[in-house]
């Protein structure tokens, strides 16, 4: 591996990361080495979504991105969704709706769903299905996840109505 590297600086879950990394270092590996357990590698080909992180609010497959690509970006993993001990409303809905079984896809699924609601606060079931189509869940049969995302959207909507 090359000793020379690329200096990168980015925001990871609210904290600044400044490091020199090998050009070929993959973002998922970088994050996992730093204890970010919510990033899970499964397919390692950018097709299953288990390793999803939000980069400037956009879900990406960290197994298919180099670290240098996020230079200057805001990177959020499931650990950074909520800045308190409370769950993010999307996490809450996943818990309440039993929208997980083995849980391996769950962090990535939650992040992609959060990005959806940020873009489209009141999605239709079809919007949810299409938006989440890059995240594979082998256990649930997907139905409970669609319910959870719609439930989170409703809760958010109700919250806005009240305030």
């Amino acid at each position: 591996m090359s000793r020379s590297g690329i200096a990168v600086s980015f925001n990871l879950n609210g904290r600044t990361v400044q490091e020199t990394v090998p050009a070929q270092q993959v973002l998922a590996d970088f994050l996992i080495e730093r204890g970010v357990a919510g990033v899970r590698v499964s397919c390692d080909q950018g097709v299953c979504g288990a390793c999803t992180a939000l980069v400037d609010g956009c879900p990406i497959a960290t197994c298919a991105a180099f670290v240098f690509q996020v230079d200057g970006c805001d990177v959020v993993t499931v650990e950074g969704l909520s800045d308190s001990d409370d769950l993010h409303p999307m996490q809450r809905s996943f818990v309440d709706r039993f929208a997980m079984q083995c849980g391996y896809c769950t962090p990535g699924m939650v992040l992609t769903a959060v990005a959806l609601l940020n873009r489209k606060p009141d999605p239709s079931p079809d919007d949810v299905r299409r938006w989440l189509a890059g995240n594979v869940c082998r256990c649930t049969g997907y139905a409970s996840i669609v319910d959870a995302v719609l439930d989170a959207a409703r809760r958010r909507h109700d919250l806005r109505e009240r305030t």
């Binding site: 357990a37 919510g38 499931v78 650990e79 769950l87 996490q91 849980g103």
Partner: peptide
């Protein structure tokens, strides 16, 4: 009844421990 899965909070927070970890 359907109490919350005992592993739900860890799984949704990315804190669940698998062999891979």
């Amino acid at each position: 009844t359907a109490p919350v899965r005992t592993d739900a909070l860890a799984k949704v927070a990315g804190a669940a421990l698998y062999t891979v970890d």
